[in-house]
Amino acid sequence: MKSKLGIASFVLLMIFAPLLIKSEYLLNLLILICLYATLSHSWNILGGYCGQISLGHATFFGAGALTFRYLWLGGVSYYLALPAGALASLILAFAIGFPSFKMKGHYFSIGTLALAMIALITVQNLLPGVSFITEACLKEYSLLTIYYLAFGVGVATVAAVYALSRSKLGLALVSVREDEEAAEAIGINTFKYKVVAMSISTVIAGFAGGIFAFYCGTYYHYAPFELGWSFDPLLIAFIGGAGTVVGPVVGAVVFVLLKELFAASLGQVNVLIFGIVFIVTVLFLPKGLVGIAGIVRKKDRSART
């Protein structure tokens, strides 16, 4: 009961946050946190719960962004363009994502990386130009709208993952992760569950892509297909804790704020310092930052007994 209250107050706080802080910069950071948390959760469903480590999420993120952008600049309002982007990303998953399940383990990982590279080069070749925000769309552009949209999508994603983690479906996904052959032996149709995980995952990635396309005023068409969009969600999920509900959220907060802090204060060495902090995190917190909570809890328990 208490925890529900806590979450509700957190959500309320975040809803009123932009009115309280009134800083465009912080609003930017909040949007980025929501964007990265969403994308990271999208990866988390497939990689963290189902154990299929995808290195090609940029493909689906990019497909969502591309679709959103075309519709939105073409005059469709953003709340229609956003789900359309997610749908496009799902269709793409049907076309190229599901066949990739023929590959297993690290073959899947690197196979999806190859798919992401194919998508990147193809988009670079087909759409070499810049996607300009038009005058009409610039009028519709407001950080506040984008924030509420990103926050809404983020909350919906976290809620979906929470529900998933408590459902039978979630259990089945975890069983595929833990031992695919054993799961198959006890009658779980692993292919089916992988497909389900991928579907949910790509829809969320498509939403995240739409938010990127809404947020970034003008960019080269290939920007959302860059390989960084495949690696960042994975890093964030592992920093926070893969296969958990809060992990990617905590990971996204730390990732965005740390990078921002380093870039503002360290100049050229910022990436180097980030790399060191990252390695230290992986070495000492193999379960991610949520692992700290586990350690605290253990101490708590031993103190009580």
């Binding site: 050229q268 990436v271 790399g275 060191i276 390695i279 992986v282 070495l283 193999p286």
Partner: peptide, 17 residues
């Protein structure tokens, strides 16, 4: 696989920078 991937990714960032 996972941990070596993550640690070496950190090394990749550090070396390039």
């Amino acid at each position: 696989l996972k941990n070596s991937l993550l640690i070496s990714f950190g090394i990749l960032l550090i070396c390039s920078n």
